[in-house]
Computed example of a mutant assay.
Amino acid sequence: MSASVCPVPPEQRPINEYQELQESWFFSWVTLEWHQYLRKLAWVWAWSWLVFGPVAAASFPPQTAIVPFFVSGAAGASLILTLVVIRLYLGWFYVRSRLIRASICYEESGWYDGQTWEKTPEFLAQDQLILSYQVQPLLKRLRRTFYGLALLVAVDGLTWICL
């Protein structure tokens, strides 16, 4: 991609934004193998207990109410995990929206000089391939993760109702 063909600054080109997310410490979690990805999410959930465990313990002493303690702590920890998954989804969805469009909005030197560039057929084809084979599967994984979290919270809620 030469600058004469594409006037968009390199850091604002969709393919470079994609590569930046792919190499990012946080956003690259989604690109890991399933077991590594789930391990990262479990790590976040476990660390979230540091915040919600004491809150749950203040409401439900673990010595006398272990199930309500665990259910409320798990719900709080799941909230943090849900926010993390939403953040991952939004980052990858932004790149998806940049790849799917036939034109790119960009700034040459600051917020006041926005421009739009129509992608050439070659750029559009390249972006569509990356979108189809790289980004869409990641978004699908994040949607599945979100559905799993929703199921976890639903089970947590049903357990709470059954208490």
Rank of each mutant, 00 (worst) to 15 (best):
V5F: 10
C6W: 14
P7E: 03
V8S: 03
Q12H: 05
Q12E: 04
R13M: 06
R13N: 01
I15F: 07
Q19V: 00
E20N: 07
E20P: 09
Q22N: 15
Q22C: 04
E23A: 14
S24E: 01
S24P: 02
W25I: 13
F26K: 04
F27T: 04
S28T: 03
W29S: 07
V30C: 02
V30D: 00
L32R: 15
E33P: 05
W34Y: 14
W34E: 14
Y37N: 04
K40F: 08
L41T: 05
A42N: 12
W43N: 15
V44S: 05
V44M: 14
V44H: 09
W45C: 13
W47C: 11
L50D: 13
V51T: 12
V51K: 15
V51E: 07
G53A: 13
G53M: 04
P54N: 06
A56N: 05
A56I: 01
A57F: 03
A57R: 03
A58R: 14
A58Y: 09
A58Q: 14
F60R: 04
T64R: 08
I66R: 11
V67R: 00
V67T: 07
F69L: 03
S72L: 12
A75M: 13
G76I: 00
A77N: 06
S78M: 11
L79N: 05
L79I: 10
T82P: 01
T82H: 07
V84W: 14
V84N: 08
R87F: 10
R87C: 10
Y89H: 13
Y89A: 12
L90D: 08
L90M: 14
L90T: 06
G91Y: 02
W92C: 00
V95Q: 00
R96T: 00
R96Y: 07
S97Q: 14
S97W: 03
R98A: 07
R98V: 02
R98P: 03
L99P: 06
R101K: 09
R101F: 07
A102V: 13
S103Q: 13
S103F: 10
C105K: 12
C105H: 15
Y106C: 03
E107S: 12
E107M: 07
G110S: 11
G110P: 05
Y112H: 13
Y112Q: 15
G114C: 15
G114W: 00
T116E: 12
T116R: 13
W117Q: 05
E118Y: 12
E118H: 12
E118C: 11
E118W: 12
K119L: 05
K119R: 11
K119W: 01
T120R: 09
P121A: 15
F123S: 09
F123R: 09
F123M: 10
Q126H: 14
